[in-house]
Amino acid sequence: MKKLTVLKQALLSLVFGISIQAYLVFPGAYEKIAIAFISVLTYRFVVQQNKIDWRYYRRMLVVILLGMFLAYSIIDFMSMEEKLDEQLKGLRNKENVAVLLVFDGESTTYDVSLALRNYRKEIKGLREITIPLKLYQYKKAYEHLRISRYQEKAISIQEKLGGLLSPHYDVYISYAEANPYYYEVMDQIILKENYDKVIVQPISIGESLEAIAEGNNRIMPYLIRSKTMVRHGESLWNSEKIAKAVVKRALGNNPEKAEGDIGIILMAGSNIQKINTKIGTINMRREMLFMERVKTYFTQQGIESRKIIALDMVNDKEGLEKAVQQLRLYGVGKIYLISIHDFLDKIENQSYIYKFMEKLEEQQDLNMEYIDGWGTEDLVIEELENRIRLLNVQE
């Protein structure tokens, strides 16, 4: 009888651990079911326990952790990448030049398997135990802002650019961290369509180059067999037009706005997990150089250099607070928080900045505005068109 009781308690603890993990990573109905299980089992474990038996709680804790690990393993298995298949069909003119735009990418709605796959690429070793908490924060960002418009705006760039390059170029779209992945599009559409020339252009200040390198390794057998000439464009860190697009998003077509007492906080998108890697260091340096270019254009519009502060990460709370306080000492009436890493910030960064602004505006009566990237301005499209045409004529 005692063994049966112990087995029952262990089973309930296992379910408790699985429920905790489900609450952290799943949205909607699954989250509500998990909360119900956690509530009932917590009542059973704590309230109905007549006396404190630390050995009992120690055993239960071990089994709960086992349940969390089991749930994580199941979710991890669900996130395994699918093999390449015919998801995408090529319907274009094979005599044209194929242009493949590579964005960082983000799912329109919260996708736990996709998010887990991306975190697994970034977080290694013992730090993997933090992934469920990161998934929870990511889920909360979607709950806060509902949907990400990243793919919608990426398609807008594709369509605008395609209109300018038509009829001799076919413009495709792919992502580093969402479907369709870069290597999928290269394999399924471009290489199998037998284009003579492919131009790959990352839409990022630097980070997408890492995904391109990874993708090339995966499709190398196809590239070896194919006669396709593949040319890679540089990341956009040295673009004057995109730097001007950032300034235009803040000031619009009215430079007189700069004559007022405004302050600027430029925020890079360096990933703390990648900063210590070789490619992470390169990307961070490129972002800092790009911010210097943006700063130059702001000063040309009449904003004092001391009122423009550059940060190397978006979600640096301490750095943001210090920057805001410093600008207030200079007597600015309005502060622009500007993300420069991508054409549109990821939803987690957006949620973080909006909450940060709401809190400070309530406490300190501040006037703040968030510019969530360089956008889809005409200057951005013109820069991409110029780069692609130049790559096409290079020997």
Rank of each mutant, 00 (worst) to 15 (best):
V6C: 00
K8C: 00
L12R: 14
L12H: 05
S13H: 09
V15C: 00
V15H: 00
I18G: 04
S19P: 09
P27F: 03
G28T: 07
E31I: 05
A36G: 09
A36L: 11
F37K: 10
Q49K: 11
M60R: 15
L61T: 15
L61H: 14
V62S: 07
L70G: 13
I75S: 04
S79F: 09
M80K: 14
E82G: 13
L88Y: 14
G90C: 15
V99H: 01
V102N: 05
F103A: 06
S107A: 14
D111E: 12
D111I: 14
N118H: 11
E122F: 07
E122G: 01
R127S: 10
R127T: 06
E128L: 04
L133W: 10
L133E: 10
K134L: 14
L135P: 07
Y136E: 02
R146C: 01
I147S: 03
R149D: 04
Q151S: 06
E152L: 03
I157R: 04
Q158R: 15
E159F: 09
K160I: 10
L164D: 10
L164Y: 13
L165S: 08
S166V: 08
V171G: 03
Y172N: 01
Y175D: 06
Y183T: 02
V185N: 04
V185E: 03
M186K: 07
D187C: 04
L191S: 03
E193S: 13
K197L: 04
Q201V: 06
I203M: 05
E207Q: 04
A213T: 14
E214C: 00
G215T: 11
G215W: 14
N216A: 09
P221M: 02
I224F: 00
R225Q: 08
S226W: 04
S235Y: 08
W237C: 08
A245Y: 07
R249T: 08
R249F: 01
R249H: 05
A250L: 11
L251R: 14
L251Y: 09
E256S: 12
K257Q: 09
D261H: 15
A268T: 11
S270Y: 01
N271C: 05
I272H: 12
I272K: 15
I272E: 12
N276Q: 07
T281C: 04
I282T: 12
L289W: 06
L289C: 02
V294G: 02
T296I: 01
G302S: 08
I303P: 00
K307Q: 09
K307G: 03
I308Y: 01
V314Q: 09
V314N: 07
V324W: 07
Q325D: 13
G331S: 05
K334N: 01
Y336Q: 01
L337Y: 03
I338P: 02
E348S: 02
S351A: 13
F356E: 05
F356L: 08
K359W: 02
E361M: 15
E361L: 08
E362C: 03
E362H: 11
E362W: 08
D365T: 13
L366T: 02
I371S: 03
L379E: 12
E383K: 04
E385Q: 15
R389C: 00
R389W: 00
L390G: 02
N392A: 11
V393E: 10
V393R: 09
Q394A: 14
E395W: 04
